[in-house]
Design a protein around this nucleic acid. Structure first.
Length: 417
RNA sequence: GUGAGCGUAGCUCAGUUGGUUAGAGCGCUGGACUGUGGCUCCGGAGGUCGCGGGUUCGAAUCCCGUCGUUCACCCCA
């Protein structure tokens, strides 16, 4: 048992499944284009410091989930755990902030060193967008609308959109304090993790799923009470626009984001049929990130969807958009003294755009038909010596079993016409 | 990083209180049918029972370790 396996947390996407992935990517490309987003492709790895600064030094992602390595000259590099930091870096690096507004989308693999479980792997795929250069709340609603649009077109429905505001640095500080005040009263009752969170990141207590903490957070002050005037009216405008767009949503005052760069609007799309990792797509505003990364102050909003989770959803609803490609034709050469005709026809048929199956093993007709039948080829063109002697070939319909003889000179026209 | 469940053929799984040569279905392959697929019948290949150690006369089965996997915690898309 010395054979190789894909590394832990990675997996192969086999041909039977790849159709679903292509479907998702194709739909995403169309939907993004209709909202005028353009694709950007950034490197799979970046200087480690980029993520440390972009995502946040204190986040779990940066602290314990990154694939970080030194290259042969000792540069400290990291496989991207998400793509927003890279996109922001590219935008600043190429002076694109002078050409606002920008609308960019990406799709590709991300890497996080986590314990694998349903909907979570070490190499996973995200597709997402970044809209850079506007504070307008209508844009937030448009982004959420686009996400719903995308998920619908992919073939998903019955998902729930949750929305909240995580405020700006000022009012979030206040909210943090009011949470500390509130949970501080019950410090002894909180679970061990949350006692630590009370010091380090009290907002995360709202995410806790233990029975005690869930009970306590029922009466925790909602962030809406702490939002400043601007953040509060921003959220109101976002929801007003969502109604204009006709998007159903749920206000979830306890929704918080894991990455430090988020401000104001935060949203998530969840599928309750999915297990513990049920967020299919999520995103929000990050109005301060670009400045923090060294660009001129510029607001932005984006989202990302987890492709593996989308695939799980689609399978869950057993609506597999699997389009396994089937060859149009089997070209079966049988007992020929020369390969002149089969090779000639192979080339002509393929040049004419047909997908043609050909058996170089020169097995018997039976074996060839069996193979063609198994993979669902619709027609077989049988070239045998006695046919060639009469300048004809036999065309067999694999579904009906009917056969007819065709003149060799007619074949290409007949099959491609 | 923590916890629990599971590792037997390519796949899905049987395998009795530990007992001698480890099985089935599907799939693959050959034949019946010398140049005609699907259906049927008959045959064949394919396993160091995840790996390592221990207990035992004897281990797929019991024990320990390890790796893998699944789910959950954590975190997050």
């Amino acid at each position: 048992m010395n054979s190789f396996k894909a590394p832990r947390g990675t997996r192969d996407i086999l041909p039977e499944e790849v159709g679903i992935w292509q479907h998702i990517e194709e739909v995403a490309g169309k939907v993004f284009a209709s909202y005028r987003y353009q694709e950007i492709r950034t490197p799979i790895f970046e200087v480690t410091e980029l993520f440390a600064r972009g995502i946040g030094e204190t986040s779990d992602i940066v602290n314990k989930e990154m694939y970080t390595f030194a290259d042969r000259k000792g540069r400290n590099l990291t496989l991207r755990p998400e793509n927003t930091a890279s996109v922001v870096r590219a935008v600043i690096e190429h002076g694109m902030l002078t050409k606002l507004p920008l609308r960019l989308y990406y799709a590709g693999p991300m890497f996080r060193y986590e314990r694998p479980q349903a909907g979570r792997s070490r190499q996973f795929h995200q597709l997402g967008t970044e809209a850079i250069g506007s504070f307008a709340p209508g844009l937030d609603a448009e982004v959420i609308t686009m996400v719903v649009h995308l998920l619908q077109d992919i073939g998903l429905s019955g998902l729930e959109v949750q929305i909240n505001s995580v405020g700006c640095p000022e009012c979030r500080g206040q909210y943090r304090q009011s949470l500390v005040d509130y949970f501080g009263q019950f410090k002894e009752d909180l679970c061990n993790d949350c006692q630590v969170r009370l010091e380090r990141n009290p907002l995360r207590i709202l995410d806790c799923k233990t029975a005690v903490c869930s009970g306590l957070k029922e009466n925790a002050p909602p962030i809406s009470d702490s939002l400043c005037q601007d953040c509060s009216s921003h959220l109101g405008e976002v929801t007003r626009h969502l109604k204009l767009f006709g998007i159903d949503y749920t206000r979830n005052p306890k929704l918080v984001r894991g990455l430090d760069y988020y401000t104001r609007t935060a949203f998530e799309v969840v599928d309750y049929g999915l297990g513990a990792q049920n967020a299919v797509a999520a995103g929000g505003r990050y109005d301060n990130l670009i400045e923090e990364m060294g660009g001129r102050p510029t607001p932005a909003i984006g989202f990302a969807a987890g492709c593996e989770r989308l695939v799980l959803c689609l399978k869950e609803r057993r609506s597999p958009a699997t389009t396994t490609s089937v060859p149009d034709l089997l070209l079966a050469a049988v007992g020929l003294s020369s390969e002149e005709y089969p090779v000639k026809f192979l080339q002509e048929l393929r040049r004419a755009g047909l997908s043609v199956l050909f058996d170089w093993e020169k097995r018997g007709l039976k074996a060839q038909l069996k193979l063609a039948n198994r993979i669902g080829v619709k027609q077989a063109l049988i070239l045998g010596q006695d046919e060639l002697d009469r300048q004809v070939a036999t065309l067999k319909d694999m579904e009906t079993g009917k056969q007819e003889e065709i003149d060799l000179v007619e074949i290409i026209n007949k099959l491609t016409g």
